[in-house]
């Protein structure tokens, strides 16, 4: 009983800061500690703030692309490379400290620039930087579920006339649909929110939502419009979490 109370207390504690930001985005006052009544004006301001829209859209586009490619490649890896050592390589890549992997990627982009003159910093760099982390992540996420598709089921499909690719398309993919959805969402939410990897791989002209939030809010600057921006940025995370827990239930 006490443990239950404790658990719910933790839950309350963890949602409080986010709740405060959401509440303040509807606060008709510029000061966070003065409640000036309900308003939607900060959202109106956000709608008119073109840079914010552009940033949200950039984040969304990158995240969708990263999630699609990473889920597909992660599935291939989980399916074709079942050896433990293969998985360990991805597992280690996933637990790399964030700043290390971001820097490694920035270094890679620098090398490309120095030796070929091709400047990838910007949208392409951000996409690749996110993808580099998202692929091992999708691999690790999908690997446990691939065993759910037994070898003989795939073989049965092959004998009934399916080519290797068709067996993956008609048998493996539908059987893994919930896990694929889950992996897609996690990768999507992760890419949408990430700041460090983006900061290292972008150029000043390409701004995503976290970059914008950092530029204003992290320095303690800006007005409640940023609360509205932060609230909007929460939507993919919440949607991802809800769908994820529904999807993953199918396996239990």
């Amino acid at each position: 009983m006490t443990l239950r109370v404790y658990t719910w207390l933790l839950i309350a504690l963890f949602y409080a800061p986010i709740g405060v930001v959401v509440a303040l985005s509807f606060n008709d006052s510029k000061l966070p500690y003065v409640w000036g009544g309900f308003t939607a004006r900060w959202y109106q301001a956000l709608v008119q703030w073109e840079q914010a829209w552009g940033a949200l859209l950039n984040s969304f586009a990158i995240a969708i692309a990263v999630a699609l490619v990473a889920t597909a490649l992660g599935l291939f890896m989980a399916y074709a490379l079942r050896k433990v050592t293969h998985l360990a390589i991805s597992q280690v890549a996933v637990v790399m400290p964030e700043v290390s992997e971001a820097l490694a990627f920035a270094a890679a982009l620098w090398l490309v620039y120095t030796y070929t003159g091709v400047n990838l910093f910007g949208p392409v760099g951000v996409f690749l930087a996110h993808l580099a982390y998202a692929i091992p992540m999708a691999h690790v996420l999908l690997a446990p579920y691939v065993t759910y598709v037994s070898r003989t089921v795939v073989e049965a499909a092959r004998i009934l006339g399916a080519s290797e690719v068709k067996a993956v398309v008609y048998i493996v993919t539908p059987m893994l649909m919930p896990a694929l959805t889950a992996a897609f969402l996690i990768v999507f939410a992760n890419s949408f929110d990430t700041y460090i990897k983006t900061a290292f791989a972008t150029e000043p002209g390409f701004v995503t939502a976290p970059i914008l939030l950092w530029n204003y809010a992290a320095r303690g600057r800006g007005d409640p419009t940023l609360y509205a921006l932060a609230t909007v940025m929460l939507i993919p995370s919440i949607a991802a979490a809800v769908i994820y827990f529904r999807a993953i239930k199918r396996y239990s």
Binding site: T7, L10, I186, L213, Y227
Partner: peptide, 18 residues
């Protein structure tokens, strides 16, 4: 309890700042 995993670090930092 697990869902906060999906909220970005920067958003969390910003909420805490507030």
């Amino acid at each position: 309890l697990v869902a906060p995993l999906w909220v970005g670090t920067l958003l969390k930092a910003y909420s805490l700042l507030v």
